[in-house]
């Protein structure tokens, strides 16, 4: 137990000596300019990211808009514009009957 205690004491003393042995660090004259250089560099990279993401967002919005327009046009052109009866009436194929098709009696010669 006393061995443990004396070891703890030696360790505490060692840590005290360590505190005194560590030199005061003042930093060079370039410390503050260096901090500002880093701040500016980080700010530039953040701005670059923001600009790039804005551009990507704008491009995505434009693509979505174009896609919407194209899709809308395609849907509109494939839909029938007239009603079913009008479509039948307009269809010429029914007027040109096949020669072998049935005709009323009066028309036969």
């Amino acid at each position: 137990m006393s061995l443990e205690n004396s070891r703890e004491e030696r360790f505490n003393r060692l840590m005290g000596d360590y505190r005194d042995a560590c030199p005061e660090v003042e930093g060079s004259a370039d410390f503050m300019p260096g901090v500002w250089r880093r701040i500016e560099a980080r700010r530039r990279s953040v701005f670059a990211w923001a600009r790039m993401s804005r551009q990507v967002l704008a491009a995505a919005a434009a693509i979505c808009f174009l896609f919407g327009v194209v899709l809308n046009t395609a849907i509109n052109s494939s839909l029938p514009v007239s009603s079913y009866v009008e479509a039948l009436d307009d269809d010429d194929a029914l007027d040109q009957l096949h020669p072998a098709s049935y005709l009323p009696d009066g028309d036969r010669e």
Binding site: E24, V25, E26, V35, R38
Partner: peptide, 26 residues
């Protein structure tokens, strides 16, 4: 001064203290 001293004791490499200190202030 205080922060650089703390960093010096935490990392134990005087040559890198200023670099880590600048990072702290950024």
């Amino acid at each position: 001064r205080r922060i650089l001293g703390t960093i010096s004791r935490l990392i134990g490499r005087p040559e890198d203290v200023e670099d880590v200190g600048q990072e702290v202030f950024v």
